[in-house]
Simulated scan of single mutants.
Amino acid sequence: MHSSVWTTAGLVGGYLTARVTGIRPLGGAVLAGCGAAAYREWQRSAGTGTAAALTGCYLVAFGLSHPLAKRLGPWPAVLSVSAATAAAAHAFADGRGSGAE
């Protein structure tokens, strides 16, 4: 699976899990698990340095979603950072033609 799918699942799924259950740490577990899966994909397709940079992007996106939610609303914020993170994952790792589809 492409890492952009993992990052989207982590950010959107983590938010949705926390919102529906009311258990923020459970949403964090979804975020972390999907982030770990994305990291493995990034490391395999683009190397450790790129994987570390994209992990930073993923974490910054999560952090930015909170202040953005105050301006845009929660769903637009989560969807915006998810799209940006998926685009970065595609540009720097998934789009490199690893052949894994």
Rank of each mutant, 00 (worst) to 15 (best):
A51T: 09
S65D: 08
G47N: 11
T85G: 13
Q43V: 11
P67D: 09
G56Q: 08
T50I: 15
A84F: 04
K70F: 03
G63V: 14
G49S: 06
S65W: 00
F92R: 15
V60K: 04
A93L: 09
H90M: 09
A46T: 02
R71H: 07
T55M: 11
A77H: 13
A77N: 09
C57R: 01
A61E: 12
A46P: 05
K70Y: 03
V78D: 12
A51I: 10
T85A: 13
G63N: 07
L54I: 06
L59V: 12
T50V: 15
Q43T: 10
A84N: 00
V78L: 08
A89C: 01
A69L: 02
V81E: 03
P76V: 00
S45P: 08
P76N: 01
V60G: 04
L79T: 08
L68Y: 00
Y58W: 03
P76Y: 09
P67C: 04
Q43P: 07
S82M: 03
G63Y: 05
T55E: 03
R44P: 02
S80I: 00
C57T: 14
G49I: 00
A88Q: 03
A89Q: 01
L68A: 07
P67W: 06
A87P: 08
A87M: 13
T50G: 13
S65E: 02
L68E: 02
W75T: 04
F62D: 01
P74W: 07
S45H: 03
A88I: 13
G56M: 13
L59N: 13
A69K: 00
A91C: 05
R71T: 05
L79A: 09
Y58N: 02
A46C: 07
S65K: 08
R71A: 12
V81G: 11
A69W: 06
G56T: 05
P76I: 01
K70N: 10
A83I: 02
L64M: 14
W75K: 06
A88P: 01
L79E: 09
A51G: 14
A89F: 06
A89N: 00
G73R: 09
P67Y: 04
V60H: 07
G49T: 11
A77W: 06
A77S: 14
F92K: 15
A86Q: 01
A93K: 02
A77R: 11
A53R: 13
A89Y: 01
R44C: 00
P76W: 09
V60E: 01
F62W: 15
A91H: 11
F92G: 11
G56A: 12
A89L: 10
L72F: 05
G49M: 10
A53N: 14
A69C: 03
A69G: 10
L79H: 04
P67L: 08
V60F: 08
Q43N: 02
A88F: 14
G47T: 05
Y58R: 02
P74S: 07
H66G: 05
S82A: 14
P74H: 06
W75M: 14
L68D: 02
R44A: 14
A87F: 11
V78H: 02
F62Y: 14
A83M: 08
